[in-house]
Structures are given as C-alpha cells and as structure tokens.
C-alpha cells in the first residue's frame, strides 16, 4: 500500500528531523528521490515548501502525500511526520523529573549533528545542471543568505519570477 509506505517513510523522517528545516532536507531527499519524485521536481518542491507558511518537513510531507494518493495520503503523511516529536514531548512531560539529561551536552551534540546533516543536504542537492543562469541564481542566493539579513524567501520568489519573466529574453541576449 502506497499510503502506508509514505506514512512509514515520513514517520522515520520525524525521528531525526531536528536542527531546523534545512538539515532535514537531505534526509527527505534520500527517502523520496527517485521513488516518488524526480530530482528536478524535488528542488521545486523544496522551494515551494520553503516559501509557503509552515515547517519545511511538514510541507514536503503534505505535498508528497498529496501527489501520491490525494487527500487521505496527504493527511496521513503530515500526521506521520509529527507523530514521533509529539510522542517525545508527551513522554518527557509525563516523566518530567524522572529523567535527567545533561542539557548542554545534548544541545552541543545536536548542533554538530545538524551541521553534518546540512553538509549532507548540500552534497545531495549540489547543482546538477551546468546551466550558467541557474548557477547564477544559486550563487546570488548564497551571497544574500550568508552576508545579508534578507530573508531567503525573497531569493526563492525573486529567482522564480525573474526566470519566468526575463529568463528567455536574457538567454537569447547572452546567447545561451
């Protein structure tokens, strides 16, 4: 059953989805490409998931579910991704003072872990096409994201709109 395997996949993603959305993207990609979506569409999906409200893991679960079985699968996938986190919070609230974890150590470990996940994400999502215009968008976005305080959402929407409206004209001018 496709719904079940979507659910199981996103349940597992929920277990390791810490450190903010971008560290999780590589894990999501490894789980869904090329099984449910191809490489290029996955990039568009991530761009959409990032520029719509809500956490990226949640949004991509909803979209993958929606495209593979419709409404029911979308609901199941979304709930699967939050199942484990919710369970953990419920458990630790119930057990409150009975477990003691060293907060500093666990946070430090998670920080290193999430940077490793981001590096892996960067590796699996490295630009595949040598199209100069598309590479330019990526480089410009890196500069904006790393050195300015501008929300990268604007880079996503900007590159999209620019490519839709001026892409063909620019390509013919510089002869691509």
């Amino acid at each position: 059953m496709e719904t079940l395997s979507v659910a199981w996949t996103f349940f597992k993603i929920g277990i390791i989805a810490f450190g903010g959305g971008w560290s999780t993207v590589g894990i999501i990609k490894n789980a869904v490409v090329p099984l449910w979506i191809d490489e290029e569409n996955f990039r568009s999906l991530i761009a959409i998931a990032q520029s719509t409200p809500g956490p990226i893991a949640l949004n991509s679960a909803t979209m993958i579910g929606w495209n593979h079985g419709g409404m029911l699968t979308a609901i199941v996938a979304t709930l699967s991704v939050v199942a484990f986190p919710v369970l953990m919070i419920a458990l630790t609230t119930l057990l409150a003072s009975k477990v003691s974890i060293n907060k500093t150590s666990i946070n430090e470990a998670l920080r290193t872990g999430s940077i490793a996940m981001m590096l892996m994400t960067l590796w699996v999502l490295r630009p595949t096409s040598m199209d100069p215009l598309l590479l330019l968008y990526a480089v410009a976005t890196f500069a904006i994201g790393a050195f300015t305080k501008i929300n990268t959402l604007w880079a996503i929407l900007g590159a999209g709109a620019f490519n839709a409206l001026l892409g063909p004209a620019l390509r013919s001018i510089i002869g691509l």
């Binding site: 968008y137 990526a138 976005t141």
Partner: peptide, 9 residues
C-alpha cells in the same frame, strides 16, 4: 528558477 536557488540557501 526557484528550485535553482536551493543549493545556495
């Protein structure tokens, strides 16, 4: 275009 910025982010 939107997908192309992802590695940059």
């Amino acid at each position: 275009g939107a997908g192309a910025v992802v590695p940059g982010i």
